[in-house]
């Protein structure tokens, strides 16, 4: 059976006055049915662009220039806009970061939900409403009937994110791309949202790409992790293996930067410098200028190499594995 999502060599460029700038430069990512993959990286590393490249919702200046994106084996790049639209919401759904912004402020919850529902199903009003209320109940919203009549501003942030999740899961899509859906929420609410999404995806066998910069969230939810740096995936593998014994120097630095991983009072290690912007990408390894392990070889572009089964690292000088 084909994996739910199969991305190979994906390149996405932004057209600028200075020519094409590649925000994604050769992304390879496979997500299987029911699997939760965390896409981790700093702001600007290309995480969100990856999500929008998959769903074909890139901003006007951006376009996919190379590579393949297959959803259940179907080549998404070959689809017409109309065919792509009919997949969105039905086969692949998205959840966004800021629940204050994802729901339309001037439309009632029921309008927004039934619109999403009826985009793919020819349902009558009453039936659509009933399905929407059921979907709200499923994400843990009490009094769903009453909530349906409300406007977004009448709901709390956590509640709004639940509504957004309910909408995204209306058609039981095969793949959900969640773009930092808990970042804007309180920590207590974060945990609840995480639990809801995890439970529903497991129940429905939905594959989930969870875009985040929060490693604590990753450890709690994901099966696999893919670490992004400057438009490339530098390391991917099973979440425990990667977090316990990172092979790429950047992953190491990222994990070390988490305050909780160090004894109190000790100086927090930092990665020196900052991620290069798209206009100043080096020729070879994008991380080399900040890397302590760099050598002359790093002036060339590293390709992903399988360091262990299911474990890919894009580095000439990977850190030694757990066993040696």
């Amino acid at each position: 059976m084909a994996p739910v999502l199969d991305i190979r060599g994906l390149r996405t460029a932004f057209a600028t006055a200075a020519g094409d700038l590649h925000a994604l430069d050769g992304i390879d990512l496979v997500v299987n049915r029911g699997e939760i993959v965390a896409l981790v990286g700093e702001s600007g590393s290309g995480k969100s662009v990856t999500g929008f490249s998959i769903t074909g919702l890139l901003p006007a200046a951006a376009r996919v220039t190379a590579g393949e994106v297959r959803l259940n084996g179907i080549d998404l790049r070959a689809l017409s806009p109309a065919a792509m639209r009919s997949l969105r919401g039905r086969k692949v759904a998205m959840i966004f970061q800021d629940p204050m912004m994802t729901l339309n402020p001037v439309l009632r919850i029921d309008t927004q939900m039934t619109d999403a529902l009826r985009a793919h199903l020819p349902l009558g009003r009453a039936e659509a409403r009933a399905r929407c209320a059921a979907a709200l109940a499923e994400v843990g919203i009490d009094e769903p009937e009453a909530r349906l009549k409300m406007y977004p501003h009448q709901l709390s942030g956590g509640m709004r994110q639940r509504v957004a999740i309910a909408i995204a899961l209306l058609h039981s899509p095969d793949l959900v791309i969640a773009d930092e859906p808990t970042t804007a929420l309180d920590v207590t609410i974060q945990g609840q949202i995480l639990a809801v999404v995890q439970r529903l995806c497991r129940e429905k066998g939905t594959a989930l790409v969870w875009i985040t910069h929060d490693l604590a969230v990753v450890a709690g939810i994901a099966d696999r992790i893919a670490v992004m740096y400057a438009g490339r995936i530098v390391e991917q593998g099973p979440v425990d293996a990667v977090l316990d014994a990172p092979r790429h120097p950047y992953t190491r630095g990222l994990i070390d930067s988490v305050p909780a991983s160090h004894p109190k009072g000790q100086r927090l290690p930092q990665i020196p410098g900052r991620m290069p912007t798209l206009t100043e990408l080096p020729e070879g390894c994008a991380f080399a200028p900040r890397c302590t392990r760099r050598s002359a070889a790093c002036a060339a572009r590293p390709d992903p190499a399988e360091a262990a089964p299911g474990r890919w690292v894009r580095c000439f000088h990977p850190l030694p594995g757990a066993g040696g």
Binding site: T55, L57, R85, S86, L87, R88, G89, R90, A93, M94, F96, Q97, D98, M101, T102, L103, N104, P105, Q112, D115, A116, A119, H120, A164, I167, A168, L170
Partner: peptide, 12 residues
């Protein structure tokens, strides 16, 4: 985002 979200839901 809400327009993006509406599009992501496949609304015409």
């Amino acid at each position: 985002d809400y327009i993006r979200f509406a599009r992501a839901n496949g609304i015409r």
